[in-house]
Amino acid sequence: MPPLLSRQYGFTLVEIAIVLVIIGLLLGGVLKGQSLIDSAKIKNIIQQANALSAAVNAYQDRFRALPGDDALATSHVPGATGNGNGDGQITEYQLAPQHLALAGFITGSYNGSTDFMTSAQGGAVYIYNEVVAGRGGNGLRFDNLPDSFAEQIDSKLDDGKFDTGSVRATGNYTNNGTTITRTALFF
Rank of each mutant, 00 (worst) to 15 (best):
M1D: 13
P2N: 15
P3H: 14
P3G: 15
Y9Q: 10
Y9D: 06
F11R: 11
F11D: 12
T12M: 09
L13Y: 15
E15D: 12
A17L: 14
I18C: 12
V21K: 13
I23H: 12
G24S: 13
G24K: 11
L25N: 01
L25A: 14
L26T: 06
V30Q: 08
K32Q: 08
G33Y: 02
S35Q: 13
L36F: 09
I37N: 08
D38G: 01
S39W: 03
S39T: 10
A40T: 09
A40S: 07
K41R: 02
K41V: 00
I42Y: 00
N44K: 09
N44P: 05
A54R: 11
V56I: 12
Y59I: 04
Y59F: 02
D61P: 04
R62C: 00
F63Q: 03
A65N: 04
A65R: 05
L66N: 07
L66E: 05
L66M: 10
D69S: 03
D69H: 10
A71V: 15
L72N: 12
A73C: 09
S75H: 07
P78H: 04
P78M: 04
P78R: 01
G79Q: 03
A80K: 03
G82A: 11
G84E: 07
G86E: 03
G86P: 10
G88W: 14
Q89T: 06
Q89K: 09
T91Q: 12
E92A: 10
Q94R: 15
A96F: 11
P97V: 00
P97Y: 00
Q98L: 06
Q98T: 00
H99R: 11
A101K: 14
F105Y: 14
S109Q: 01
Y110C: 01
G112R: 14
M117P: 08
T118W: 03
T118H: 11
Q121S: 06
G122T: 02
G123V: 06
G123L: 07
V125W: 13
G134W: 13
G137C: 04
R141Y: 07
N144D: 12
N144P: 08
N144Q: 11
P146V: 08
P146Q: 01
D147Y: 09
D147S: 10
D147A: 00
D147P: 08
S148W: 04
F149K: 02
A150D: 06
E151R: 07
Q152S: 04
Q152P: 01
Q152G: 00
I153V: 07
D154C: 03
D154V: 04
K156T: 05
L157D: 01
D158Y: 05
D158P: 05
G160W: 11
K161H: 08
K161S: 12
K161R: 12
F162H: 14
D163L: 13
D163P: 13
G165R: 11
S166R: 14
S166Y: 15
V167H: 08
T170W: 12
G171A: 09
N172W: 00
Y173Q: 00
G177A: 00
T178I: 05
T178W: 03
T178H: 04
T179I: 14
I180D: 05
R182I: 03
T183P: 07
F186P: 15
F186D: 06
F187L: 11
F187H: 08
